[in-house]
Design a protein around this nucleic acid. Structure first.
Lengths: 113, 113
DNA sequence: TATGATCGATTACAGTTGTAAACGATAAAG
DNA sequence: CTTTATCGTTTACAACTGTAATCGATCATA
């Protein structure tokens, strides 16, 4: 539902058109979802005549941060390293990515005396 | 609900006792949950007389793996490196952990020629 | 101005989850 | 043997989610 993160504000019709092709939802369904997101206070809108322009109340990065924290807590009880190890062990990374991650780790170890 | 991962099999009563203190659920509630987990085929049981001993059908690590994959896909569209970077940037790691992670990364870069 | 298309709001309805009580069978206690 | 406590099973019910149709108002069109 967060086609609105790519561009905002957008009217319901615009959102529906965006989603056409990517998912197979009835336009009615999308209206309902927009409505519910407004009720949950994650979207807001401004009236342009009788038409609403919707816009997100939270950035994609804010949501990701929430997701990261809750995932880490729920699945790993907050233990970061074991989680990192598991991800590293089951996914392949390009050597470039590996270098970049090592650089970040280096910076971290400097950050704390 | 996965006190059963720590020790299994266990009867409903044992599970209830385990949970006493950690969470505030009515024993009835716990029975319901056990039942639903059996229906969802994530728990199974063997009858000991009229009492059931429950045991998990999937290991904790199997579930974690699922959680990891769905999280990575859902929140990061499967892109591992950005996810790693975000986790590293918002959490502190001990220098020991940092070293260990770097070692793993080293091994990975050797693993692929 | 009457009519049909379109908007957002309201209502629908099945499935899942949180939280538990009621029910029927059996084992334990008197 | 009767009463009571204890099992697992079934039923309850509200909130939330997936998926949409309907309704009342308004805008566009004939």
């Amino acid at each position: 539902m967060k086609v609105l993160w790519k561009k905002s504000p957008q009217t319901a019709k615009q959102v529906i058109d965006q989603l056409k092709g990517s998912v197979e939802w009835n336009p009615k369904t999308i209206k309902t979802l927009l409505n519910r997101l407004v009720n949950k206070e994650v979207l807001d809108f401004t009236k342009k005549g009788r038409i609403y322009e919707y816009h997100p109340l939270y950035s994609e990065e804010e949501c990701r941060q929430n997701e990261r924290n809750s995932f880490l807590k729920r699945v790993y009880n907050g233990a970061l390293k074991p989680m990192m190890v598991a991800f590293l062990e089951e996914n392949e990374l390009s050597s470039k990515d590996i270098e970049e991650l090592k650089n970040i780790l280096d910076k971290e170890s400097k950050g704390e005396a």
